[in-house]
Design a binder for these strands. Structure first.
Lengths: 154, 154
DNA sequence: AAATCCGGTTTCAAAATGCAACCCTATTCG
DNA sequence: CGAATAGGGTTGCATTTTGAAACCGGATTT
């Protein structure tokens, strides 16, 4: 049967995964962040089948993660560029990269070294933080009941 | 043909996606973070087919994201608990949730309100930060050449 | 003793994926 | 100019993956 989708889930993680939660989409976004914009370049760098790449790019465009820009003088050359929504996946991608580097270090060589352009210093590990900027683990947080539910049950 | 895997990719994002990059795995981890531990509970909360759930749980256990704990007095009742590696996905999940809340708000109701247990204040948006704690966008960073490559080309 | 719960495995149809071949429109090369 | 090649796809087909439902065997409950 068909893969399940979560378009209308009331869980925002499920809705997010619905857009970028398959094997390729986030890698495409990652490469777009590295600067890749052309169909052929995505294809070669990712080693993805062309039909799948077509499908994924179309879906990402539909979901407003990428924008398809016509750059051909005569109309047959395109670029796929990140939208603000797409660029906003930056923390997700970096958090995932850091997790991968920490728990599945590359067999050969150091992890990719991402640095602040201004200071030249490495970026910090991505964490969930409280209002003072202190990192929080999963046990340091709780889910506040939302207003409506609170008032309904009152 | 079979889905491509990235076990040996030299990209840590690809390696990470190899472990939690399918439609279900991260949702399973999410629910584990909410406190779900039993097979049946995952099954009902996620609405996932049992065979797929079996497969995903086994894979997550193999990859050391979950630990399968025998809690049956006589050996046939289990719990799946997050390992440290699994809990370490917290920033990834929260970043993804915040992205979903921002760009695909729930049709009905507010986003889930995650708060610091100690202060009672909402957690901050997850961002990539420089050494001073200032948030960085994708254009504010660069990839430093690694030592080996630098010395090889010198 | 019968029914139910838990955690699976099996079976089978419907999708999704990957590869290779093909297509059409520019553009480039000789 | 004509031929070859690049870009961006689409089509067909074989292989996997997924999902639903049926089944299963050992505890536990009734």
């Amino acid at each position: 049967m068909a893969r399940k989708r979560f378009d209308d889930s009331n869980c925002s993680v499920a809705r997010a995964l619905n857009e970028v939660g398959d094997w390729w989409s986030l890698l495409i976004v990652l490469h777009a962040m590295y600067g890749t914009r052309r169909f052929v370049d995505f294809q070669q760098q990712l080693g993805i089948a062309k039909n799948i790449l077509c499908d994924r790019l179309a879906r990402l465009v539909d979901n407003d993660v990428l924008r398809k820009v016509d750059v051909g003088e005569h109309g047959s050359r395109f670029e796929y560029r990140l939208t603000e929504k797409g660029r906003d996946l930056f923390p997700v991608v970096v958090a995932l990269r850091q997790w991968g580097d920490k728990w599945n270090p590359a067999p050969d060589g150091q992890p990719l070294d991402l640095r602040d352009r201004e200071s030249g210093q490495p970026v910090q590990p991505v964490t969930v933080q409280n209002s003072e900027g202190q990192p929080l683990g999963i046990r340091d947080v709780f889910v506040a009941e939302d207003q409506e539910e609170a008032s309904r049950s009152a």
